[in-house]
Design a protein around this nucleic acid. Structure first.
Lengths: 248, 248
DNA sequence: CGAGAGTTTGAAGGCAGTCAAAACTAGTGG
DNA sequence: CCACTAGTTTTGACTGCCTTCAAACTCTCG
Protein backbone atom coordinates (compact mmCIF):
# COMPACT_ATOMS: atom_id res chain seq x y z
CA UNK A 1 0.00 0.00 0.00
CA UNK A 2 2.83 2.38 -0.73
CA UNK A 3 2.27 2.75 -4.45
CA UNK A 4 0.80 6.21 -4.21
CA UNK A 5 3.99 7.99 -3.29
CA UNK A 6 4.16 11.14 -5.30
CA UNK A 7 7.35 11.19 -7.35
CA UNK A 8 8.31 14.82 -6.89
CA UNK A 9 8.98 14.51 -3.19
CA UNK A 10 10.04 17.60 -1.21
CA UNK A 11 13.60 18.13 -0.17
CA UNK A 12 13.12 16.18 3.02
CA UNK A 13 15.89 14.11 4.50
CA UNK A 14 13.53 11.62 6.11
CA UNK A 15 12.81 8.46 4.25
CA UNK A 16 9.08 8.47 3.56
CA UNK A 17 9.08 4.69 3.67
CA UNK A 18 10.31 4.32 7.21
CA UNK A 19 8.01 2.12 9.29
CA UNK A 20 6.43 3.13 12.60
CA UNK A 21 8.98 0.97 14.42
CA UNK A 22 11.84 2.98 12.95
CA UNK A 23 10.16 6.39 12.98
CA UNK A 24 11.93 8.79 15.26
CA UNK A 25 8.57 10.32 16.16
CA UNK A 26 6.94 7.16 17.40
CA UNK A 27 7.37 8.02 21.05
CA UNK A 28 5.11 11.02 20.47
CA UNK A 29 2.76 9.49 17.96
CA UNK A 30 2.26 6.07 19.54
CA UNK A 31 3.26 6.39 23.18
CA UNK A 32 3.97 3.09 24.93
CA UNK A 33 0.82 1.53 23.68
CA UNK A 34 1.69 -0.81 20.84
CA UNK A 35 4.02 -3.79 21.12
CA UNK A 36 6.79 -4.41 18.65
CA UNK A 37 5.20 -7.44 17.00
CA UNK A 38 1.93 -5.56 16.63
CA UNK A 39 3.56 -2.60 14.96
CA UNK A 40 3.83 -4.62 11.76
CA UNK A 41 0.07 -4.93 11.54
CA UNK A 42 -0.27 -1.21 12.09
CA UNK A 43 2.38 -0.50 9.48
CA UNK A 44 0.38 -2.48 6.97
CA UNK A 45 -2.66 -0.24 7.14
CA UNK A 46 -0.83 3.08 7.24
CA UNK A 47 -0.40 4.92 3.97
CA UNK A 48 2.77 6.95 3.73
CA UNK A 49 4.10 9.57 1.42
CA UNK A 50 1.55 12.15 0.28
CA UNK A 51 3.80 15.21 0.57
CA UNK A 52 1.76 18.40 0.62
CA UNK A 53 2.97 21.80 -0.45
CA UNK A 54 2.24 25.08 1.22
CA UNK A 55 -1.46 25.89 0.88
CA UNK A 56 -2.49 22.35 -0.11
CA UNK A 57 -5.54 20.92 1.59
CA UNK A 58 -5.21 17.57 3.32
CA UNK A 59 -8.98 17.44 3.51
CA UNK A 60 -11.85 19.89 3.22
CA UNK A 61 -14.71 20.47 5.64
CA UNK A 62 -17.69 18.35 4.53
CA UNK A 63 -15.44 15.78 2.87
CA UNK A 64 -16.46 12.25 3.85
CA UNK A 65 -14.35 11.11 6.76
CA UNK A 66 -12.13 8.13 6.04
CA UNK A 67 -8.84 8.61 7.84
CA UNK A 68 -6.98 10.36 10.58
CA UNK A 69 -3.49 11.66 9.86
CA UNK A 70 -0.17 11.82 11.68
CA UNK A 71 2.17 14.65 10.74
CA UNK A 72 5.64 13.37 9.78
CA UNK A 73 7.25 16.70 8.96
CA UNK A 74 6.02 20.23 8.39
CA UNK A 75 2.98 21.92 9.90
CA UNK A 76 -0.75 21.78 9.30
CA UNK A 77 -3.48 24.12 10.45
CA UNK A 78 -7.07 23.08 11.09
CA UNK A 79 -9.84 25.56 10.37
CA UNK A 80 -13.59 25.64 10.77
CA UNK A 81 -15.77 27.79 8.56
CA UNK A 82 -18.31 29.85 10.48
CA UNK A 83 -21.80 30.70 9.31
CA UNK A 84 -20.71 33.99 7.81
CA UNK A 85 -17.92 32.33 5.86
CA UNK A 86 -15.12 33.49 8.12
CA UNK A 87 -12.52 30.95 9.07
CA UNK A 88 -11.61 30.00 12.61
CA UNK A 89 -8.23 28.35 13.18
CA UNK A 90 -8.83 25.49 15.63
CA UNK A 91 -5.33 24.10 15.85
CA UNK A 92 -1.78 23.78 14.59
CA UNK A 93 -0.37 20.30 14.14
CA UNK A 94 3.35 19.63 14.41
CA UNK A 95 5.28 16.46 13.59
CA UNK A 96 4.18 13.49 15.68
CA UNK A 97 0.70 14.90 16.26
CA UNK A 98 -2.57 13.42 15.04
CA UNK A 99 -5.39 15.33 13.37
CA UNK A 100 -8.73 14.63 11.78
CA UNK A 101 -10.55 13.12 14.74
CA UNK A 102 -13.29 15.73 14.55
CA UNK A 103 -14.72 13.82 11.59
CA UNK A 104 -15.54 10.64 13.48
CA UNK A 105 -18.82 11.82 15.01
CA UNK A 106 -20.63 12.57 11.76
CA UNK A 107 -18.47 10.64 9.32
CA UNK A 108 -17.76 14.01 7.76
CA UNK A 109 -14.92 16.39 8.46
CA UNK A 110 -16.01 19.51 10.33
CA UNK A 111 -12.61 21.13 9.82
CA UNK A 112 -10.43 21.72 6.81
CA UNK A 113 -6.73 20.92 7.12
CA UNK A 114 -4.18 23.03 5.24
CA UNK A 115 -0.41 22.67 4.98
CA UNK A 116 1.46 25.78 6.18
CA UNK A 117 4.68 24.56 4.55
CA UNK A 118 5.87 21.43 2.79
CA UNK A 119 4.42 18.69 4.91
CA UNK A 120 4.41 14.89 4.94
CA UNK A 121 1.74 12.87 6.69
CA UNK A 122 0.89 9.26 7.44
CA UNK A 123 -2.69 8.42 6.59
CA UNK A 124 -4.42 6.04 8.97
CA UNK A 125 -7.66 4.65 7.47
CA UNK A 126 -10.03 4.81 10.38
CA UNK A 127 -12.22 1.81 9.62
CA UNK A 128 -9.19 -0.46 9.44
CA UNK A 129 -7.78 1.10 12.56
CA UNK A 130 -11.06 0.31 14.32
CA UNK A 131 -10.89 -3.32 13.24
CA UNK A 132 -7.31 -3.55 14.38
CA UNK A 133 -8.25 -1.99 17.71
CA UNK A 134 -10.45 -4.95 18.45
CA UNK A 135 -7.45 -7.24 18.12
CA UNK A 136 -5.01 -4.90 19.85
CA UNK A 137 -6.64 -3.49 22.99
CA UNK A 138 -3.71 -1.19 23.68
CA UNK A 139 -4.35 0.45 20.32
CA UNK A 140 -7.97 1.04 21.21
CA UNK A 141 -6.88 2.58 24.48
CA UNK A 142 -4.34 4.70 22.68
CA UNK A 143 -6.96 6.18 20.41
CA UNK A 144 -9.27 6.89 23.30
CA UNK A 145 -6.36 8.70 24.91
CA UNK A 146 -5.51 10.65 21.77
CA UNK A 147 -9.08 11.89 21.51
CA UNK A 148 -9.19 12.72 25.19
CA UNK A 149 -5.96 14.70 24.75
CA UNK A 150 -7.60 16.66 21.98
CA UNK A 151 -10.55 17.42 24.29
CA UNK A 152 -8.20 18.57 27.03
CA UNK A 153 -6.25 20.75 24.62
CA UNK A 154 -9.42 22.34 23.25
CA UNK A 155 -10.61 23.07 26.78
CA UNK A 156 -7.29 24.70 27.56
CA UNK A 157 -7.78 26.96 24.56
CA UNK A 158 -11.31 27.74 25.74
CA UNK A 159 -9.89 28.84 29.07
CA UNK A 160 -7.24 30.92 27.35
CA UNK A 161 -9.79 32.71 25.17
CA UNK A 162 -12.18 33.18 28.03
CA UNK A 163 -9.92 34.46 30.75
CA UNK A 164 -6.63 35.77 29.38
CA UNK A 165 -5.41 39.03 27.89
CA UNK A 166 -3.77 39.43 24.51
CA UNK A 167 -0.27 39.26 25.99
CA UNK A 168 -1.10 36.14 27.96
CA UNK A 169 -2.55 34.42 24.92
CA UNK A 170 0.43 35.12 22.70
CA UNK A 171 2.87 34.12 25.43
CA UNK A 172 0.97 30.88 26.07
CA UNK A 173 0.98 29.97 22.42
CA UNK A 174 4.72 30.53 22.10
CA UNK A 175 5.32 28.42 25.21
CA UNK A 176 3.13 25.66 23.80
CA UNK A 177 5.14 25.57 20.58
CA UNK A 178 8.37 25.69 22.54
CA UNK A 179 7.30 22.70 24.64
CA UNK A 180 6.20 20.70 21.63
CA UNK A 181 9.48 21.45 19.86
CA UNK A 182 11.41 20.35 22.90
CA UNK A 183 9.53 17.05 22.91
CA UNK A 184 10.84 16.49 19.41
CA UNK A 185 14.38 17.18 20.62
CA UNK A 186 14.47 20.53 18.87
CA UNK A 187 15.40 23.81 20.49
CA UNK A 188 12.89 25.09 23.02
CA UNK A 189 14.17 28.64 22.68
CA UNK A 190 14.88 29.17 19.01
CA UNK A 191 12.42 28.22 16.29
CA UNK A 192 10.61 29.34 13.22
CA UNK A 193 6.85 29.89 13.27
CA UNK A 194 5.18 28.23 10.32
CA UNK A 195 2.02 30.31 10.58
CA UNK A 196 1.37 33.95 9.68
CA UNK A 197 0.49 36.62 12.20
CA UNK A 198 -3.04 36.41 10.83
CA UNK A 199 -3.25 32.70 11.64
CA UNK A 200 -1.88 33.30 15.11
CA UNK A 201 -4.41 36.04 15.74
CA UNK A 202 -7.25 34.01 14.35
CA UNK A 203 -6.33 31.07 16.59
CA UNK A 204 -6.02 33.30 19.66
CA UNK A 205 -9.11 35.41 19.04
CA UNK A 206 -7.08 38.53 18.31
CA UNK A 207 -6.48 40.80 15.32
CA UNK A 208 -3.24 40.75 13.35
CA UNK A 209 -2.38 44.19 14.65
CA UNK A 210 -2.70 43.12 18.27
CA UNK A 211 -0.47 40.07 17.75
CA UNK A 212 2.13 42.24 16.07
CA UNK A 213 2.01 44.82 18.85
CA UNK A 214 2.36 42.19 21.56
CA UNK A 215 5.37 40.65 19.84
CA UNK A 216 6.97 44.08 19.50
CA UNK A 217 6.36 44.73 23.18
CA UNK A 218 7.94 41.41 24.19
CA UNK A 219 10.91 42.26 22.02
CA UNK A 220 11.22 45.69 23.61
CA UNK A 221 11.13 44.06 27.04
CA UNK A 222 13.90 41.69 26.09
CA UNK A 223 11.72 38.62 26.53
CA UNK A 224 11.85 37.67 22.86
CA UNK A 225 13.92 38.30 19.84
CA UNK A 226 11.59 38.47 16.86
CA UNK A 227 12.88 38.47 13.32
CA UNK A 228 9.96 37.92 11.00
CA UNK A 229 8.95 34.34 11.74
CA UNK A 230 12.13 33.44 13.58
CA UNK A 231 11.49 33.56 17.30
CA UNK A 232 14.07 33.35 20.03
CA UNK A 233 12.96 33.17 23.63
CA UNK A 234 15.53 35.20 25.55
CA UNK A 235 13.86 35.13 28.93
CA UNK A 236 11.90 31.93 29.45
CA UNK A 237 10.82 32.83 32.97
CA UNK A 238 9.68 36.23 31.80
CA UNK A 239 7.61 34.61 29.10
CA UNK A 240 6.11 32.18 31.62
CA UNK A 241 5.18 35.07 33.88
CA UNK A 242 3.63 36.85 30.94
CA UNK A 243 1.61 33.74 30.07
CA UNK A 244 0.19 33.18 33.56
CA UNK A 245 -1.70 30.14 32.17
CA UNK A 246 -1.22 26.41 32.07
CA UNK A 247 0.50 25.28 28.96
CA UNK A 248 0.50 21.58 28.20
CA UNK B 1 -24.08 -4.01 41.54
CA UNK B 2 -27.00 -1.86 42.61
CA UNK B 3 -26.46 -2.06 46.34
CA UNK B 4 -25.08 1.44 46.55
CA UNK B 5 -28.33 3.25 45.92
CA UNK B 6 -28.60 6.00 48.46
CA UNK B 7 -31.78 5.54 50.48
CA UNK B 8 -32.86 9.17 50.65
CA UNK B 9 -33.53 9.48 46.94
CA UNK B 10 -34.70 12.81 45.52
CA UNK B 11 -38.30 13.38 44.62
CA UNK B 12 -37.82 12.05 41.13
CA UNK B 13 -40.55 10.23 39.28
CA UNK B 14 -38.13 8.14 37.23
CA UNK B 15 -37.32 4.71 38.49
CA UNK B 16 -33.58 4.70 39.15
CA UNK B 17 -33.47 1.00 38.35
CA UNK B 18 -34.73 1.26 34.78
CA UNK B 19 -32.40 -0.47 32.31
CA UNK B 20 -30.88 1.17 29.25
CA UNK B 21 -33.38 -0.66 27.07
CA UNK B 22 -36.28 0.95 28.89
CA UNK B 23 -34.67 4.33 29.49
CA UNK B 24 -36.53 7.07 27.69
CA UNK B 25 -33.20 8.82 27.07
CA UNK B 26 -31.50 5.98 25.27
CA UNK B 27 -31.97 7.47 21.82
CA UNK B 28 -29.79 10.38 22.96
CA UNK B 29 -27.38 8.49 25.14
CA UNK B 30 -26.77 5.43 22.97
CA UNK B 31 -27.82 6.39 19.45
CA UNK B 32 -28.41 3.47 17.10
CA UNK B 33 -25.22 1.74 18.01
CA UNK B 34 -26.02 -1.07 20.41
CA UNK B 35 -28.28 -4.00 19.62
CA UNK B 36 -31.02 -5.16 21.92
CA UNK B 37 -29.35 -8.38 23.01
CA UNK B 38 -26.13 -6.53 23.71
CA UNK B 39 -27.84 -3.97 25.88
CA UNK B 40 -28.06 -6.54 28.66
CA UNK B 41 -24.29 -6.78 28.84
CA UNK B 42 -24.04 -3.03 28.98
CA UNK B 43 -26.71 -2.87 31.66
CA UNK B 44 -24.66 -5.22 33.77
CA UNK B 45 -21.67 -2.92 34.02
CA UNK B 46 -23.59 0.33 34.53
CA UNK B 47 -24.05 1.50 38.09
CA UNK B 48 -27.26 3.40 38.69
CA UNK B 49 -28.67 5.50 41.47
CA UNK B 50 -26.18 7.92 43.03
CA UNK B 51 -28.49 10.93 43.32
CA UNK B 52 -26.53 14.12 43.84
CA UNK B 53 -27.81 17.25 45.53
CA UNK B 54 -27.16 20.82 44.48
CA UNK B 55 -23.49 21.62 44.92
CA UNK B 56 -22.37 17.99 45.28
CA UNK B 57 -19.29 16.95 43.33
CA UNK B 58 -19.57 13.96 41.01
CA UNK B 59 -15.79 13.97 40.80
CA UNK B 60 -12.98 16.40 41.51
CA UNK B 61 -10.14 17.47 39.24
CA UNK B 62 -7.11 15.27 39.95
CA UNK B 63 -9.29 12.38 41.12
CA UNK B 64 -8.19 9.13 39.51
CA UNK B 65 -10.28 8.46 36.44
CA UNK B 66 -12.42 5.34 36.62
CA UNK B 67 -15.71 6.06 34.93
CA UNK B 68 -17.63 8.23 32.56
CA UNK B 69 -21.16 9.29 33.51
CA UNK B 70 -24.49 9.68 31.75
CA UNK B 71 -26.88 12.25 33.19
CA UNK B 72 -30.33 10.74 33.91
CA UNK B 73 -32.02 13.81 35.33
CA UNK B 74 -30.89 17.22 36.52
CA UNK B 75 -27.88 19.23 35.34
CA UNK B 76 -24.16 19.08 35.90
CA UNK B 77 -21.50 21.66 35.18
CA UNK B 78 -17.88 20.83 34.37
CA UNK B 79 -15.18 23.19 35.53
CA UNK B 80 -11.42 23.44 35.15
CA UNK B 81 -9.28 25.23 37.70
CA UNK B 82 -6.81 27.66 36.18
CA UNK B 83 -3.33 28.36 37.50
CA UNK B 84 -4.49 31.31 39.56
CA UNK B 85 -7.23 29.26 41.18
CA UNK B 86 -10.06 30.73 39.15
CA UNK B 87 -12.63 28.34 37.76
CA UNK B 88 -13.52 28.01 34.09
CA UNK B 89 -16.86 26.41 33.25
CA UNK B 90 -16.21 24.06 30.33
CA UNK B 91 -19.68 22.65 29.87
CA UNK B 92 -23.21 22.02 31.06
CA UNK B 93 -24.51 18.48 30.87
CA UNK B 94 -28.22 17.78 30.49
CA UNK B 95 -30.07 14.45 30.72
CA UNK B 96 -28.92 11.95 28.12
CA UNK B 97 -25.47 13.52 27.80
CA UNK B 98 -22.15 11.93 28.73
CA UNK B 99 -19.38 13.57 30.72
CA UNK B 100 -16.00 12.68 32.15
CA UNK B 101 -14.16 11.79 28.95
CA UNK B 102 -11.48 14.39 29.62
CA UNK B 103 -9.99 12.00 32.18
CA UNK B 104 -9.10 9.24 29.75
CA UNK B 105 -5.86 10.76 28.46
CA UNK B 106 -4.06 10.96 31.80
CA UNK B 107 -6.16 8.55 33.84
CA UNK B 108 -6.94 11.57 35.99
CA UNK B 109 -9.85 13.97 35.73
CA UNK B 110 -8.84 17.40 34.46
CA UNK B 111 -12.28 18.82 35.24
CA UNK B 112 -14.45 18.79 38.32
CA UNK B 113 -18.14 17.99 37.88
CA UNK B 114 -20.73 19.65 40.11
CA UNK B 115 -24.50 19.16 40.31
CA UNK B 116 -26.43 22.38 39.70
CA UNK B 117 -29.62 20.83 41.07
CA UNK B 118 -30.73 17.40 42.26
CA UNK B 119 -29.22 15.12 39.66
CA UNK B 120 -29.12 11.38 38.95
CA UNK B 121 -26.40 9.78 36.85
CA UNK B 122 -25.47 6.39 35.44
CA UNK B 123 -21.85 5.50 36.13
CA UNK B 124 -20.07 3.63 33.36
CA UNK B 125 -16.80 2.06 34.57
CA UNK B 126 -14.44 2.81 31.74
CA UNK B 127 -12.17 -0.22 31.96
CA UNK B 128 -15.14 -2.56 31.73
CA UNK B 129 -16.60 -0.50 28.91
CA UNK B 130 -13.30 -0.87 27.06
CA UNK B 131 -13.37 -4.65 27.47
CA UNK B 132 -16.95 -4.75 26.28
CA UNK B 133 -16.05 -2.55 23.30
CA UNK B 134 -13.79 -5.30 22.06
CA UNK B 135 -16.72 -7.70 21.95
CA UNK B 136 -19.22 -5.15 20.67
CA UNK B 137 -17.65 -3.13 17.84
CA UNK B 138 -20.65 -0.85 17.59
CA UNK B 139 -20.05 0.17 21.19
CA UNK B 140 -16.44 1.00 20.40
CA UNK B 141 -17.57 3.08 17.48
CA UNK B 142 -20.17 4.79 19.62
CA UNK B 143 -17.58 5.89 22.13
CA UNK B 144 -15.31 7.17 19.40
CA UNK B 145 -18.27 9.16 18.15
CA UNK B 146 -19.15 10.49 21.58
CA UNK B 147 -15.62 11.75 22.06
CA UNK B 148 -15.54 13.24 18.60
CA UNK B 149 -18.81 15.02 19.38
CA UNK B 150 -17.21 16.49 22.46
CA UNK B 151 -14.29 17.73 20.33
CA UNK B 152 -16.66 19.30 17.84
CA UNK B 153 -18.67 20.95 20.60
CA UNK B 154 -15.54 22.36 22.23
CA UNK B 155 -14.38 23.74 18.89
CA UNK B 156 -17.75 25.39 18.42
CA UNK B 157 -17.31 27.07 21.78
CA UNK B 158 -13.81 28.15 20.77
CA UNK B 159 -15.27 29.80 17.69
CA UNK B 160 -17.98 31.47 19.76
CA UNK B 161 -15.46 32.89 22.21
CA UNK B 162 -13.08 33.93 19.48
CA UNK B 163 -15.42 35.61 17.03
CA UNK B 164 -18.73 36.56 18.60
CA UNK B 165 -20.01 39.49 20.67
CA UNK B 166 -21.64 39.23 24.07
CA UNK B 167 -25.15 39.25 22.57
CA UNK B 168 -24.24 36.55 20.08
CA UNK B 169 -22.74 34.35 22.77
CA UNK B 170 -25.73 34.57 25.09
CA UNK B 171 -28.17 34.01 22.23
CA UNK B 172 -26.19 30.98 21.02
CA UNK B 173 -26.15 29.45 24.45
CA UNK B 174 -29.90 29.83 24.87
CA UNK B 175 -30.47 28.31 21.44
CA UNK B 176 -28.22 25.40 22.33
CA UNK B 177 -30.19 24.68 25.48
CA UNK B 178 -33.42 25.08 23.57
CA UNK B 179 -32.29 22.54 20.98
CA UNK B 180 -31.14 20.06 23.58
CA UNK B 181 -34.43 20.39 25.47
CA UNK B 182 -36.36 19.81 22.28
CA UNK B 183 -34.40 16.61 21.67
CA UNK B 184 -35.67 15.38 25.03
CA UNK B 185 -39.24 16.21 23.95
CA UNK B 186 -39.39 19.18 26.28
CA UNK B 187 -40.41 22.68 25.29
CA UNK B 188 -37.94 24.46 23.02
CA UNK B 189 -39.31 27.87 23.99
CA UNK B 190 -40.02 27.71 27.72
CA UNK B 191 -37.52 26.36 30.21
CA UNK B 192 -35.72 26.96 33.47
CA UNK B 193 -31.97 27.59 33.48
CA UNK B 194 -30.25 25.46 36.08
CA UNK B 195 -27.13 27.64 36.20
CA UNK B 196 -26.57 31.07 37.70
CA UNK B 197 -25.75 34.19 35.70
CA UNK B 198 -22.21 33.81 37.01
CA UNK B 199 -21.93 30.31 35.54
CA UNK B 200 -23.34 31.51 32.23
CA UNK B 201 -20.88 34.35 32.11
CA UNK B 202 -17.97 32.16 33.11
CA UNK B 203 -18.85 29.65 30.38
CA UNK B 204 -19.23 32.39 27.76
CA UNK B 205 -16.18 34.42 28.73
CA UNK B 206 -18.29 37.33 29.99
CA UNK B 207 -18.92 38.99 33.34
CA UNK B 208 -22.14 38.54 35.30
CA UNK B 209 -23.06 42.13 34.62
CA UNK B 210 -22.76 41.71 30.88
CA UNK B 211 -24.91 38.58 30.85
CA UNK B 212 -27.55 40.37 32.88
CA UNK B 213 -27.49 43.39 30.59
CA UNK B 214 -27.81 41.26 27.47
CA UNK B 215 -30.77 39.38 28.91
CA UNK B 216 -32.45 42.67 29.85
CA UNK B 217 -31.87 43.96 26.34
CA UNK B 218 -33.39 40.85 24.76
CA UNK B 219 -36.38 41.23 27.06
CA UNK B 220 -36.79 44.89 26.11
CA UNK B 221 -36.66 43.89 22.44
CA UNK B 222 -39.39 41.32 22.95
CA UNK B 223 -37.13 38.42 21.97
CA UNK B 224 -37.22 36.83 25.42
CA UNK B 225 -39.29 36.87 28.52
CA UNK B 226 -36.95 36.56 31.48
CA UNK B 227 -38.20 35.90 34.96
CA UNK B 228 -35.26 35.04 37.14
CA UNK B 229 -34.15 31.65 35.78
CA UNK B 230 -37.33 31.02 33.83
CA UNK B 231 -36.72 31.81 30.17
CA UNK B 232 -39.32 32.03 27.44
CA UNK B 233 -38.23 32.50 23.87
CA UNK B 234 -40.86 34.79 22.35
CA UNK B 235 -39.20 35.36 18.98
CA UNK B 236 -37.17 32.35 17.90
CA UNK B 237 -36.14 33.90 14.60
CA UNK B 238 -35.07 37.06 16.35
CA UNK B 239 -32.93 35.03 18.72
CA UNK B 240 -31.39 33.13 15.81
CA UNK B 241 -30.55 36.40 14.09
CA UNK B 242 -29.03 37.67 17.30
CA UNK B 243 -26.93 34.51 17.58
CA UNK B 244 -25.52 34.62 14.07
CA UNK B 245 -23.57 31.43 14.85
CA UNK B 246 -23.95 27.71 14.27
CA UNK B 247 -25.62 26.00 17.17
CA UNK B 248 -25.56 22.25 17.15
C1' DC C 1 12.52 44.19 -10.72
C1' DG C 2 7.74 44.84 -9.57
C1' DA C 3 3.35 43.48 -7.65
C1' DG C 4 0.90 41.60 -4.01
C1' DA C 5 0.84 39.70 0.31
C1' DG C 6 2.24 40.08 4.96
C1' DT C 7 3.86 42.95 8.82
C1' DT C 8 4.39 46.97 11.63
C1' DT C 9 3.07 51.28 13.70
C1' DG C 10 -0.07 55.14 14.81
C1' DA C 11 -4.51 57.39 16.04
C1' DA C 12 -9.26 57.10 17.34
C1' DG C 13 -13.40 54.74 18.82
C1' DG C 14 -16.38 51.07 20.93
C1' DC C 15 -17.54 47.08 23.54
C1' DA C 16 -17.17 44.80 27.50
C1' DG C 17 -14.91 45.09 32.10
C1' DT C 18 -14.55 47.24 36.61
C1' DC C 19 -16.32 49.54 40.47
C1' DA C 20 -20.26 50.69 43.15
C1' DA C 21 -24.71 50.38 44.94
C1' DA C 22 -29.50 49.20 44.94
C1' DA C 23 -33.13 45.61 44.35
C1' DC C 24 -34.40 41.24 44.90
C1' DT C 25 -34.24 36.22 46.40
C1' DA C 26 -33.47 32.43 49.25
C1' DG C 27 -32.17 30.21 53.17
C1' DT C 28 -31.77 30.36 58.47
C1' DG C 29 -33.14 30.37 62.89
C1' DG C 30 -35.71 32.62 66.48
C1' DC D 1 -44.43 33.31 60.53
C1' DC D 2 -41.40 36.73 60.25
C1' DA D 3 -36.95 38.87 60.74
C1' DC D 4 -32.42 38.73 59.31
C1' DT D 5 -28.55 37.74 56.62
C1' DA D 6 -25.98 36.12 52.74
C1' DG D 7 -26.05 35.59 48.11
C1' DT D 8 -27.66 36.68 43.44
C1' DT D 9 -29.22 39.80 40.02
C1' DT D 10 -29.83 44.24 38.06
C1' DT D 11 -28.63 48.92 36.82
C1' DG D 12 -25.54 52.94 36.34
C1' DA D 13 -21.17 55.52 35.53
C1' DC D 14 -16.53 55.29 34.14
C1' DT D 15 -12.29 53.11 32.44
C1' DG D 16 -9.37 50.51 29.49
C1' DC D 17 -8.05 47.00 26.26
C1' DC D 18 -8.52 45.61 21.96
C1' DT D 19 -10.46 46.68 17.45
C1' DT D 20 -10.91 49.44 13.51
C1' DC D 21 -9.18 52.36 10.09
C1' DA D 22 -5.23 54.08 7.75
C1' DA D 23 -0.73 54.21 5.93
C1' DA D 24 4.10 53.05 5.61
C1' DC D 25 7.20 49.40 5.26
C1' DT D 26 9.17 44.71 4.02
C1' DC D 27 9.44 40.36 2.17
C1' DT D 28 8.57 36.94 -1.37
C1' DC D 29 8.56 35.05 -5.70
C1' DG D 30 7.03 35.13 -10.46
Amino acid sequence: MTSNIISKSPRCHHNPQVSCGDCRLNSICLPISVHVDELDKLDEIIQRGRPLHKGDYLYHANDPFTSVYAVRSGTIKSIRITNDGEEQVTGFHLPGEILGMDGIAQNVHTNSAIALETTAVCEIPFARMEELSIKIPSLQRHFFQLMSQEITADQQLITLLSKNSAEERVASMLLSISTRNHRRHLSATLFRLAMSRADMGNYLGLTVETVSRVLSRFQKQGVLSVDKKEIEILDMDGLRKAARADVC
